[in-house]
């Protein structure tokens, strides 16, 4: 049983981020309702982990949301909704919530809270214990390994419009040095390349 992690993004140390990953969640519907009702105690970004590929995928969205918040250019209500929005390849806020936010059927849930969020009310609740009591599910480690396990790769490819076929195609002679590696290495490599394209798409969003 993990306690969730408190992370400090390089250069944004003033805004520590709490991240908890839960699997076998049974009360997603309840959590979603708290967001819809604007319950102030539930100021989190609740993500459905099936559309998350890796730790960096999440952190890139968090970085962008905090940075945009510092610069007073949020497109959505607050830094937490902005995290969900930042993951999306386009500017449709409702769609970003359908794709990346918690849904009634969410099984693996990623909860994120930006502490000392700029322009946001201070919450007295400790996110680790509050989440522990309000999310019905098992907390697991926030890691690439666990995120890979819950990721729905075909769906992620579709959302970011990645042509899956092209990736394994000839890499020219540079692939020669990799020919000795086994399938595990290549799968990891492909995931890394996918992450790189996704982060690029997210960085360009809104341009």
């Amino acid at each position: 049983m993990s306690a969730g992690s408190e992370l400090k993004l390089p250069h944004l140390e003033a805004y520590p981020v709490h991240v908890s990953l839960f699997q076998d969640v049974t009360n997603a519907e309840f959590l979603k309702r708290q967001l819809l009702e604007g319950n102030a105690e539930y100021e989190y970004a609740f993500l459905d982990a099936t559309t998350i590929i890796s730790v960096n995928h999440v952190l890139a969205a968090v970085f962008r949301a905090i940075n945009d918040s510092i610069h007073n250019r949020l497109k959505s209500r607050n830094v937490h909704s902005e995290i969900v929005f930042s993951l999306s390849p386009n500017n449709n806020i409702a769609e970003s919530f359908r794709r990346f936010g918690v849904s009634d059927t969410t099984n693996t849930l990623l909860a994120i809270k930006v502490l000392n969020a700029p322009n946001s009310a201070v919450t007295r609740l400790d996110p680790a214990s509050h989440l522990g009591s309000c999310v019905e599910g098992n907390r697991i480690e926030f890691s690439d390994e666990n995120l890979k396990h819950s990721a729905d790769l075909p769906r992620i490819r579709k959302i970011y419009k990645l042509n899956s076929s092209d990736n394994s195609k000839s890499k020219g002679k540079s692939a020669k040095s990799e020919s000795t590696t086994n399938g595990v290495h290549n799968e990891a490599h492909e995931l890394k390349e996918m992450e790189a394209v996704i982060l690029g798409i997210m960085a360009l969003k809104g341009s």
Binding site: N56, A60, F63, R64, L162, N163, D166, N167, K169, K171, S174, E193, E195, A196, V197, L199, G200, A203, L204
Partner: peptide
């Protein structure tokens, strides 16, 4: 990056 040409990834 999309087309598989080896270049640095854009992270932000």
């Amino acid at each position: 990056k999309r087309e598989g040409v080896v270049v640095p990834a854009v992270l932000g």
